[in-house]
């Protein structure tokens, strides 16, 4: 089943890491960082992927851009398979998938000018050279709200927000179909965060690019995403269109996450009945049987520790993996 409009199609993807052997030998169970993931992102669409540390959202992002080979399953970008692709095939694929990381300082080479950084993907692929290349770099700088004269400067001469603009310009240089944004505004100050979010929305309108927007911040996701997927211990527990998700969150973990988000509204915050989850995320190397959330779940019953709930569709368009929600 292939969706022709889909920019990204992830089918039953798992990423397992081999765990280190114990002192007395024996092969321990692998760490199932990501397991049984299905996702689709359409053209010009933003999927917000939400979860806490260790839920596997970064591993999944890395698999989608081809930085980590999936253990099983299929990842297709515009119909081309990423999983198991050769180096040459991956090189061709990356033209269509780019990534933006959390820390713009670490994403830029301090000894390379901004112009050179943005020109590199274009030069490497022989898209443009000479005068044309320079014009293209200037145009990209303008697109992200910087000036042509900035091309000759080095990353340290820019603020954090400007550096994230530079990283975005470089990611868009090859006009990719999909940009994976891994916590792109988490390291930025509040007022700068708004500028970068506005820029991402604006670029999507103009270029039709799709985003996989990975974040722990539900307020940001509500602002930027068309659909939302929530991960817990390597699996998606709920996926729904934005308005459905925020109006009627169903999975108990997603609900707890929603209630834990500190909203910038003291009246609402104090009126809110918050579900404070007890305990912490279990280790993915030793995930609980059945539903991985049952150890912390307020709704859990016997069946939850035995049978893993499947993602099932609900009348309002949400997909939820819970026996009771």
């Amino acid at each position: 089943m292939t969706d022709l409009d889909a920019v990204l199609e992830v089918r039953d993807v798992a990423v397992h890491f081999a765990a280190r052997g114990g002192l007395f030998g024996g092969t321990p169970a692998p760490v199932k960082a990501v397991d049984g993931i299905d996702l689709t992102i359409g053209a010009g669409e933003t999927l917000g992927l939400v979860g806490e540390s260790g839920c596997g959202k970064s591993t999944l992002s890395n698999a989608i851009v081809g930085l980590v080979p999936p253990t099983s399953g299929s990842i297709r970008v515009r119909g081309h398979e990423v999983a198991g692709a050769s180096r040459a095939a991956l090189h061709a694929l990356r033209r269509n998938v780019q990534m933006i990381f959390q820390d713009p300082v670490l994403s830029l080479d301090p000894r390379s000018t901004v112009g050179a950084a943005i020109a590199e993907p274009l030069a490497v692929r022989g898209v443009a050279r000479g005068r044309v290349l320079k014009d293209k770099v200037d145009a990209l700088l303008a697109q992200v709200g910087l000036e042509a004269e900035h091309a000759g400067r080095y990353p340290h001469q820019f603020s954090g927000g400007q550096r994230q603009r530079i990283v975005i310009a470089r990611a868009l240089a090859l006009e990719p179909a999909l940009v994976v944004c891994d916590e792109p505004v988490s390291a930025l100050d509040v007022s700068v965060r708004a500028q970068i979010l506005n820029l991402l929305v604006d670029l999507q309108r103009r270029m039709g690019v799709s985003y996989l927007f990975v974040s722990h911040d539900l307020a940001v996701v509500r602002h930027i995403a068309d659909r939302v997927a929530v991960m817990y211990l390597g699996r998606i527990v709920e996926q729904a269109p934005r308005d459905v998700f925020f109006a009627a969150t169903k999975h108990p973990y997603a609900r707890a996450l929603m209630s834990a988000v500190p909203e910038a509204d003291p009246v609402a915050q104090r009126a809110k009945r918050r579900t404070i989850l007890s305990g912490e995320l279990p280790s993915p190397s030793n995930a609980p049987p059945g539903c991985a959330f049952h150890t912390r779940c307020p709704l859990a019953t016997d069946v939850c520790s035995r049978e893993r709930p499947r993602l099932t569709p609900r009348p309002d368009g949400a997909l939820v993996a819970c026996h009771h929600a």
Binding site: S191, R193, A194, D202, A219, V220, R222, H223
Partner: peptide, 24 residues
Amino acid sequence: ALLLASVPGRDQPPKQPLATIDGQ
């Protein structure tokens, strides 16, 4: 006022520009 308006909240329509503070 601008700091508060730049935080995406329940009242802000999705994907509409957030308030920003120009300069540094």
